[in-house]
Design a protein around this nucleic acid. Sequence first.
DNA 1: AGCGGTGTATTATGGCACTGATGCAGTCTG
DNA 2: CAGACTGCATCAGTGCCATAATACACCGCT
Lengths: 113, 113
Amino acid sequence: MSTQSKPVYLKLRDMIAAAIIDGRYAEGEMLPSVRALAAEQGANPLTVAKAYQQFQNDGLVEVQRGVGMYVVRGAAERLRRSERENFLRDEWPEIRARMARLGVSATELLADA
Amino acid sequence: MSTQSKPVYLKLRDMIAAAIIDGRYAEGEMLPSVRALAAEQGANPLTVAKAYQQFQNDGLVEVQRGVGMYVVRGAAERLRRSERENFLRDEWPEIRARMARLGVSATELLADA
DNA sequence: AGCGGTGTATTATGGCACTGATGCAGTCTG
DNA sequence: CAGACTGCATCAGTGCCATAATACACCGCT
């Protein structure tokens, strides 16, 4: 019975990525401060910072010290593309193999998309 | 870049489950001994034992002390069913939402089958 | 009985990821 | 400048994971 509890900072990272792709964190706008998001999510500010860190490294977010972090132009599309590539290259083959083993029909599940 | 590799005992558990479902570890036959599998996989016998443990708890494997562990009749099918349920209930919805967000279409996934 | 094969229990130890508390550095506004 | 807000760095604590070294209990064979 794998509870599969991903680390908090990765869960936050996924939430943030989704929000950027969906435009809820719009390009050019400021992200919630680490403290604000930490309070909202009941997490530690440092854990939130760790989640933000990766977006800075990838140049999807710009830091203005003392001010805040901003979503750069084109971040949503770039993020969507890279996530998409990763999904198709790394995750989907495994998922597909797993589904085959378990007797789950991919065509059937994807039909009513 | 945290590779975030799953714990060894869980990876082993997945390997074993796959082998049972595929019939490579056939019903009624004896599983590799903890020491043998440990040597083969370069792991610690206790780690292998931990992986085996869960199958005993679920009654998919029978222990004959001093002899070995045997795959019970119907284990493959039972395991396949439960894994299938878990997959459809826990994993598939998330995968599906993720695909929608990333703009992955059903047709393109099934094309390169 | 003896031997070698099984799984199991115990204890100790090292590593590493995650989380947390505190304080510092930079920027803006009044 | 004073205060309140930003992000960031440092240090420390915690828990899980994996390993290791033994020792034990059971079974089947010779």
